[in-house]
Design a protein around this nucleic acid. Structure first.
Lengths: 207, 207
DNA sequence: CCGGCTATCCCCCTTTTGCGGTAGAGGAGT
DNA sequence: ACTCCTCTACCGCAAAAGGGGGATAGCCGG
């Protein structure tokens, strides 16, 4: 019989932390050892408590869940991070796993599924929500197709910058920006930069 | 001593419903009489159970929280709707109240605050989360400044349509569309349509 | 060592967008 | 009745964006 699984809850919404606490309290072998409502305190708490699993939201004020995940997996390697997020952020799966997360589960998952995912990642295995597998396998995991540079440019477009503005900001030629934009449009199957930015915001490729 | 407050929970995330159930179970005078995970079943349940209060999320698959709110306040006038949503959707406040909601509270609110809000709306009073009052009073409640037509056009822009496309869709002249777009840009303080769409998506003016 | 990916840059051309000003018709409120 | 707002529509012009074609250099993995 294994020891208890220690668990850290990270989410900026009080009500979600309550819900998680309630769900986890039903599993006798899981113990919640802390809660955080933003990335920075999540990292600090993880380093102090060294839990087996961190249940991590992505969208949070200040340091977001992906940055916090990278920080935690770098400094507390024995801790497994399970990303816990909404369906609309499904395209973060790729970057989530890149940043060191061991699992990825949706907020709409029933709690039995959540408990199984926690056990899996605590045992050193990976877990990906079944609802995400189709898009993952089809390579429709859209943000994976964008390079870091392209995401960076797309982010600036979302802030209303023209090609010239972006070129100035990144110290590159305007022609280069146009080139990147054309690639972004092709990859996101968008006709206009506006459409590309909307798609990216909707699937949380940028924010 | 008043009778119990009956309450319906509407949110598409299992974990949020759990959290609400837990929070509300701590208040002896509040009784949860139902749960729904989308707008349509929320309306059906409200009509059958006729609760004192509906705690309503906004973003949901299918019928959203605003449409459900309008439907409920139209058909079950004795029921008070309390909109319960995330900070990033703060600009929905105006439309929320328009659609008949009697209160508006943020998901990050501590549960005592939530309980107070429930009591207030059950008693026939209004409630607006204090965190939203500054933007409300300053008139920075951005989506209030956009007319219905402008929102409609902005929504189409977000789907990647050109002025000509929008004109065709709405059976109006392209010049008219340009006119609307200029007004939108001015109101949202955006330089480009892309910026306007990004702002609108970020503050949930459109989706 | 070579092929593929990435980032950079350049040309030309057409279409779209943004910005200025202007204005009538209809509705709501005072 | 009068005013304010909204939606509608037009003109012209300068800037920006989109689409096509290229090219070069670095870097990484087979």
């Amino acid at each position: 019989m294994p020891a208890d699984i220690t668990c850290l809850i990270v989410d900026d919404h009080e009500v979600v932390r309550e819900g998680l606490r309630l769900s986890l309290s039903r599993a006798p072998h899981i113990r919640v050892v802390g809660e955080a409502s933003d990335g920075a305190s999540a990292v600090a708490l993880a380093q102090r408590r060294r839990p087996n699993v961190v249940i991590m939201d992505v969208r949070m004020p200040g340091m977001d869940g992906l940055a916090a995940t990278k920080e935690i997996t770098d400094t507390v390697p024995e801790t497994a991070v399970l990303i816990f997020t909404a369906y609309s952020e499904r395209s973060l799966l790729g970057r989530g796993l890149e940043s060191g997360a061991r699992g990825y589960i949706l907020k709409e998952a029933p709690h039995q599924t959540l408990l199984r995912a926690i056990e899996k990642v605590a045992a050193g295995e990976g877990y990906v929500d079944p609802a995400l597998m189709p898009s993952f396998l089809n390579g429709k995991d859209r943000d994976e197709m964008l390079t870091a540079r392209e995401r960076e440019i797309l982010q600036l477009l979302a802030d209303g910058m023209s090609n010239a503005d972006v070129a100035g900001r990144l110290f590159i030629s305007q022609e280069t920006v146009k080139s990147h934009v054309r690639h972004i449009l092709a990859k996101l199957e968008a006709n206009t930069r506006t459409h590309a930015v909307a798609t990216a915001l909707r699937t949380a490729i940028i924010d």
